[in-house]
């Protein structure tokens, strides 16, 4: 039972550790099943997503706000977003779903390695732009992770249908990311007076936007028509950039206006 912060003694049981560990167990089981029976894996993933979403709602109810106030909740929300995107874009192909489920498990394990204490958000987080900005960005991360996983399958099978999926996932991620940046920009203006700052996290957010903006122009470039491998390659590189933007800027660069 985790320690509950002062003032949150009435937190519902669903807000604390148990359901998060249950969701993690579902994700691990889904990953294991994906290697033998992908169909069963989808069911396990679906149960995990529902439990995880309920636990997240419970934390939100306990603090009266969107539960994204620390690193635990950030990694948990990222895992939930990737899990949801995996379920939505499900394909019964091991090479596509196993890396995505592994990513969900790693994100969830990272979340559970941090204290699960509940805490109230600081006043600067109390704006509508914050709970719009962060989930949109996590869904974009999930969508681009799926594009990278689909690229692995394309490199193995060379099936044009996977190229179509990669294009669509990259474009959807770009749309989600653009709206996330718009919301983040509005938040930046009302909180700090600027929609952009020379801060590593924000610079890498811009990098992601430019990377996927140029990605979606590749299939319009005649000189690249005979090189279909460019888009899958860019999707994989883009996912590396996602990891740098999300994890690297907080843990490697060290100095960022974004705590997580």
């Amino acid at each position: 039972m985790p320690e509950i912060a002062n003032g949150l003694d009435a937190a519902p049981p669903f807000a604390v550790a148990g359901p998060f560990y249950a969701a993690f167990a579902c994700y691990v089981a889904a990953l294991a099943a994906s290697l033998v029976r992908p169909r069963i894996s989808l069911w396990l993933l679906g149960i995990g997503v529902v439990v995880h979403f309920g636990a997240t709602l419970g934390r939100g109810w306990a603090i009266g706000f969107f539960p994204l106030t620390n690193k635990m909740e950030s990694f948990s929300a990222a895992a939930l977003a990737v899990a949801a995107v995996t379920a939505i874009s499900w394909r019964d192909v091991r090479l596509y779903i196993a890396p995505l489920l592994a990513l969900v498990c790693v994100a969830m394990l990272t979340a559970l390695s941090f204290p699960l204490d509940l805490g109230f958000p600081p006043p600067l987080m109390r704006t509508i732009w914050y709970p719009l900005h962060v989930p949109l960005s996590f869904f974009a991360y999930g969508t681009w992770a799926a594009a990278a996983a689909a690229s692995l399958v394309w490199f193995r099978d060379r099936d044009p249908a996977w190229l179509t999926l990669i294009d669509r996932l990259a474009l959807n991620g770009f749309g989600l990311w653009s709206f996330s940046m718009i919301c983040g920009g509005f938040w930046g203006v009302v909180a700090w007076g600027a929609y952009f700052m020379w801060d590593v996290k924000i610079i890498w957010s811009v990098i992601l936007w430019f990377h996927y903006a140029s990605f979606i122009h590749v299939h319009l470039t005649p000189s690249l028509f005979p090189r279909p491998w460019v888009r899958p390659a860019l999707a994989i590189v883009g996912f590396v950039w996602v990891l740098v933007a999300y994890v690297g800027t907080s843990f490697l660069f060290g100095r960022s206006s974004h705590a997580f």
Binding site: F210, H211, A213, H217, V218, L220, T221, P222
Partner: peptide, 10 residues
């Protein structure tokens, strides 16, 4: 050209 746009983006 689109190619110049892709190069500038990258």
């Amino acid at each position: 050209s689109q190619g110049l746009g892709v190069i500038c983006g990258q």
